[in-house]
Design a protein around this nucleic acid. Structure first.
Lengths: 112, 112
DNA sequence: ACCCAATATGCCTCTGTAGTTATATGCCTG
DNA sequence: CAGGCATATAACTACAGAGGCATATTGGGT
């Protein structure tokens, strides 16, 4: 299921759909128009998102209103966690180095 | 480049490589063996990761030691940010509901 | 019951890509 | 400078996925 999540979000159109649903739930037609996709194409993308658990459907007459379910993204966040530590360290280190450069005068770089 | 990042991480083998490089930099051969991949396959995956900016190479004699560069993942994190807010809200709401259920014992939580 | 609107599904094509084998390149060592 | 490693690249095969079209399906209104 984790693989399905990554695969679902790997497609730019599907990320666009997800971003669209971040604002509010929408019908298939709305999504298709907003993303410049055909209706069948949109349906297929939504199916992938549904199977990844990222989207839920509510039936309203003939409309199928799709709403975002952000829960699976917590898994992405968890996956990202170990790396987050690293890149914040890098940024911190960079910041410190820049601070030192302005504070004292640089380790290697001549002041001028 | 953002697309390349998603595409790179969409592949399970490449995520495995990235996770492997989280521990320490490794040569192509090491990676291939650890992931059960062929040498050419590994090279190709590493190329994708390199072009996504996730990996950097240091040449050591014949070895090419690849190291993780977690910086691009910050972009993933930024992308995830708006959704993170949502799912924490959901979890909070769930927590509150459970609390109310134990606190009072009403099914419908008639607290207010 | 019929018809219309909204959506899903099947089929086809095409591109992209993962995997494999074989070969080329680069770099050290004797 | 010849030989052996480690890695990259090329050529090929196979298959998954995205897009487009036509059509089936579902629900509602009259």
């Amino acid at each position: 299921m984790f693989d399905a999540l990554w695969a679902a979000l790997a497609d730019p159109h599907r990320r666009a759909i997800v971003a669209l649903l971040l604002e509010r739930p929408r019908s298939v037609g709305e999504i298709a128009q907003a993303c410049g996709l055909s209706q069948p194409g949109t349906s297929k993308h939504l199916k992938v998102l549904r199977e990844a658990g990222l989207v839920r459907v509510r039936q309203d007459a003939q409309r199928r209103v799709h709403a975002l379910d952000p829960a699976p993204m917590a898994a992405l966040d968890a996956w990202l966690a170990p790396y987050r530590k690293l890149w914040t360290e890098s940024l911190d280190a960079l910041g410190r180095r820049l601070d030192e450069r302005t504070d004292t005068h640089g380790t290697r770089a001549p002041k001028d």
